[in-house]
């Protein structure tokens, strides 16, 4: 871990000012930042501890305008919130199925959506080649162990998968991100927060330098009660998704009025499966329709050996999630 100066900010403007003065990182739960600093992957020279902002940025509010989640709300608080569990089960489940009890107590929503990939070639600085860590250095994963790597949204420069869960729920529900930055506040669709790796995998988000996530919005969506987060993993708990699916269904009898689908564990960024949604619109949700949707979702999948099974698993995961959502009472 490189040396850094430590500041605590008790107000957003102070945080922005502190962060503006060098290669800085905001510190909230610290579960990604400290981990990667110990591995020498992240090397901020200034760490701005924003936990004192939790009193203002830690809220969970629901109303006619939908749901608003403060960026400093802890994962555990949102996962346990009775209203979120009732009205937006996909959000509560995505958080409850992530990480561990301690990590959920520490990590905040803002940090959660920004967690970095688990690609071991990224996390281990002894690999010289990692375009995400050292732009232009190459990608060690391409001829390495790729079991947990992405099959969607990859490029020849990076196949690292996005490891989070909550992001898929937000994405499926058309969430938004609220930001504060040196240029003032702004709000963007959550779908615009993460970038595809392309030829700049080191640029993971569209955040401007110094910009701070202050909260998330979810528009009102009564049928979000019929939503699930299905996470397929190698052990019963405390593991990253091998494949996951966030699904919300608006049903008219047996027919799908609208489906929302986002996929995790299989893509380089939180992945909205709009092709699959389109396949389902207006259809009766039966095995054949679900299979067609799953086919559509993974039509462009590219595999790299160890993860050859992932499109098949991803399809099955989506089909299972669709039927699981179908069985729910809305």
């Amino acid at each position: 871990m490189r040396p850094f100066t430590y500041d605590r900010a008790d107000a957003v403007p102070a945080a922005l000012r502190a962060a503006g003065s060098g290669a800085s990182s905001y510190l909230a739960g610290g579960t990604t930042l400290l981990d990667l600093m110990k591995l020498d992957v992240m090397r901020p020279e200034r760490v701005v501890d924003i936990t004192p902002l939790a009193s203002r940025l830690g809220g969970i509010e629901a109303g006619p305008q939908g749901l608003r989640l403060g960026a400093l709300a802890h994962m555990s608080a949102v996962a346990d919130d009775a209203m979120v569990r009732r009205d937006y089960p996909v959000i509560a489940e995505s958080l409850a199925l992530a990480a561990s009890g301690q990590l959920r107590n520490m990590a905040t929503l803002g940090g959660n959506v920004l967690q970095r990939t688990r690609c071991n070639y990224f996390r281990d600085v002894s690999y010289a080649a990692c375009n995400k860590r050292r732009p232009g250095s190459g990608c060690s994963a391409l001829d390495g162990v790729t079991r947990l790597h992405a099959v969607l949204g990859t490029s020849e420069h990076c196949i690292a998968s996005y490891p989070g869960d909550f992001a898929q729920a937000l994405l499926a529900l058309d969430g938004t991100v609220e930001l504060e930055g040196p240029q003032g506040p702004r709000r963007i669709p959550f779908a615009e927060l993460h970038r595809l790796p392309g030829d700049t995998p080191h640029l993971e988000t569209t955040l401007a330098p110094g910009e701070l996530i202050t909260g998330f919005g979810v528009p009102p969506l009564p049928w979000a009660r019929r939503s699930v987060y299905l996470k397929v993993r190698d052990r019963e708990s405390y593991a990253f998704a091998v494949a996951s699916a966030a699904v919300a269904l608006d049903l008219d009898g047996g027919r799908v009025r609208e489906a929302r689908i986002a996929l995790g564990g299989v893509a380089t960024r939180p992945w909205r499966a709009r092709e699959a949604e389109a396949v389902l619109a207006g259809q009766v949700l039966d095995e054949a329709a679900a299979q067609r949707a799953a086919e559509a979702a993974f039509r462009d999948a590219r595999t790299h050996g160890d993860n050859d099974f992932k499109p098949e698993l991803g399809r099955r995961t989506l089909v299972r999630a669709l039927f699981q959502a179908q069985r729910l009472g809305a």
Binding site: V232, R233, D234, E236, A243, L313, R316, T317, V319, R320
Partner: peptide
């Protein structure tokens, strides 16, 4: 699991 093959 008959679909996703996790073993528990």
């Amino acid at each position: 699991h008959a679909r996703t093959a996790e073993v528990r």
